[in-house]
Design a protein around this nucleic acid. Structure first.
Lengths: 129, 129
DNA sequence: CTTGACCTTCCTGTCACTGGAAGCCTCATC
DNA sequence: GATGAGGCTTCCAGTGACAGGAAGGTCAAG
């Protein structure tokens, strides 16, 4: 399977797939003409990566998870630890964003949004007490 | 005021302040020795930037907001538009993260987290239907 | 006069790609 | 056999918003 077909099947851009090879996440074979040759296993790994990335795992987390995936003697505790770490970061990000949303929402509500210069949003950013 | 003092007062790292000058957000004066000389107005603008960044506005949004802030003849509608744009992006990010959290949370709950290899998290990432 | 804290510029690295240029390879058509 | 389209290759540069660090100038205190 060539990179174009794999890209279609996995939904990952060819650029991304090349990048994943670059950083040694996958190791497709090569044809005589230099084209990458993807085995079903490679495609499978790419799908795994796509799903893990969609869940927001970093590339390094993905590397760990992929290694665990391939390791038949893994302990599910190791997987769970990585996932929980990541979940914590997600939750912390959500909290940050919620705080931003609330503040910004209040400011927006308070702003007339007309052609006059007076604006609570700017007043707040400017440091009004 | 030198950069160190400004850094302390605004809470922004000196590196960040230099960066903001680099991209023309602020234009402090220079002493004869080449040191940056910050006027109260510069410090004020940096505080503005710090607060806007804390609300998650991009640098380009900050540039726009700062220009509006300085413009006495602005229309508050312009400010409100920028803020609402940003709010939408925040809300969309929150939704993405909530979806991730839910999925990941379910998977984590389903994972025994012991020393056995069987793991619903990996099963899902691997493409179990 | 030296020490240590502060300041300067410049270069590199981050993260996970994305865009683009320049140049092969392959297949179909004329 | 020439041509053209589309796919593949590598390599280089850019993204956002800085952070780290090297090499060197400046300043106040002891």
């Amino acid at each position: 399977m060539n990179i174009g077909a794999v890209s279609k099947e996995t939904g990952l851009p060819a650029k991304t797939i090349r990048y994943y090879e670059d950083i040694d996440l996958i190791k497709p074979l090569r044809d005589d003409n230099g084209y990458r040759q993807f085995r079903p296993r490679d495609v499978h790994m790419l799908n795994f990566l796509g799903r893990a990335r969609a869940l927001g795992f970093t590339i390094e987390h993905c590397r760990t998870l992929l290694a665990l995936y391939e390791d038949e003697t893994r302990a599910s505790a190791d997987v769970k630890r990585v996932a929980r770490d990541h979940l914590k970061q997600i939750e912390s990000k959500i909290e940050d964003l919620n705080a931003m949303r609330d503040t910004l929402g209040h400011l927006i509500d308070a702003c007339a949004g007309d052609d006059r210069p007076d604006c609570p949003i700017l007043r707040d950013l400017g440091g009004a007490s």
